[in-house]
């Protein structure tokens, strides 16, 4: 249950960022507490995807102002891999394909890297095999996907399920889902959403960047934020998403 006394996981203050000299984010403020689900919506070009990439540390974006505190740490000082070690996860809108590397080998490499950094033990291939087979049930993924090369020849829905499987393996404190619902049919959407719901605990949080309300039918947000022109211009509850669905974005003003 959410209460204002829950621990703050992420505090974004007046964040500005640019890409190739063009300002995209122009002063974002956002507080995310443990156990919360935040939806970030907004028209094309509003800066939603940029915001998620800046949080994960994409090198093409330059932070020009403001700060991001993640569990007491200055997130902006950390390279992307250390953000991952600290517990930030980004589910990509367009996951890349890695031919020649099996999904299970890749997941094991990521698991072992992260868990060693967090003070855990390495799993050998056999131990990991048991572990990952159990985890893949979360996204109803056939075990044969573990033997295939990472995302190679996967359909759009399979790639997104694989992203959620990675989320399950990396066990983040803050998961950012960048347009995870795009390109999904209704069954894949249900599977992906149910995977996310199963991974939610009172100690972690989710930021969902999405264009459409339909994902929010499956993952209920505590807050809905509307972005426009690189800022969050309105924040409301889940009913705001429904209103956006019927009325569009034009009526929303800062």
């Amino acid at each position: 249950m959410i209460s204002s006394s829950s621990k703050i996981i992420l505090e974004v203050r007046n964040l500005s960022a640019s890409v190739a000299g063009v300002g995209i984010l122009k002063g974002i403020n956002l507080t995310v507490r443990a156990g919360e689900v935040h939806a970030i919506m907004g028209p094309n070009g509003s800066g939603k995807s940029t915001f998620s990439k800046v949080l994960a540390g994409h090198p093409s974006y330059t932070v020009t102002g403001g700060e991001v505190i993640f569990q007491g740490k200055n997130l902006l000082e950390l390279p992307p891999e250390e953000r991952a070690h600290a517990g930030v996860f980004l589910a990509f809108q367009y996951p890349i394909e890695i031919p020649g590397v099996s999904n299970s080998a890749f997941l094991r490499l990521a698991y072992n890297t992260l868990h060693t950094r967090r003070g855990g033990e390495d799993l050998d291939p056999l131990e990991f095999n048991d572990y990952i087979r159990e985890k893949s049930k979360i996204v109803e993924m056939d075990p044969s996907f573990l033997d295939r090369n990472v995302n190679e020849g996967f359909s759009g829905g399979e790639k997104k399920r694989n992203e959620i499987l990675q989320m399950a393996v990396l066990d983040p404190t803050l998961a950012i889902l960048d347009e995870t619902d795009s390109g999904l049919d209704i069954d894949a959407l249900r599977i992906v959403a149910s995977g996310v719901n199963r991974l939610m605990t009172p100690n972690n949080a989710v930021i969902m960047v999405t264009h459409y309300q339909r994902l929010l039918n499956y993952i209920t947000p505590d807050f809905v934020h509307v972005m426009r022109g690189g800022q969050i211009i309105k924040t409301g509850g889940k009913e705001l998403a429904l209103e956006l669905e019927t009325r569009g974005y034009d009526w929303v003003h800062a």
């Binding site: 540390g57 090198p59 390279p79 992307p80 991952a84 996860f89 890349i96 890297t113």
Partner: peptide, 15 residues
């Protein structure tokens, strides 16, 4: 590719 590197970095792998 920057995108490929970023994908792997975001999974905790160093450069």
């Amino acid at each position: 590719e920057t995108e490929e590197m970023f994908y792997l970095n975001s999974r905790g792998l160093n450069a």
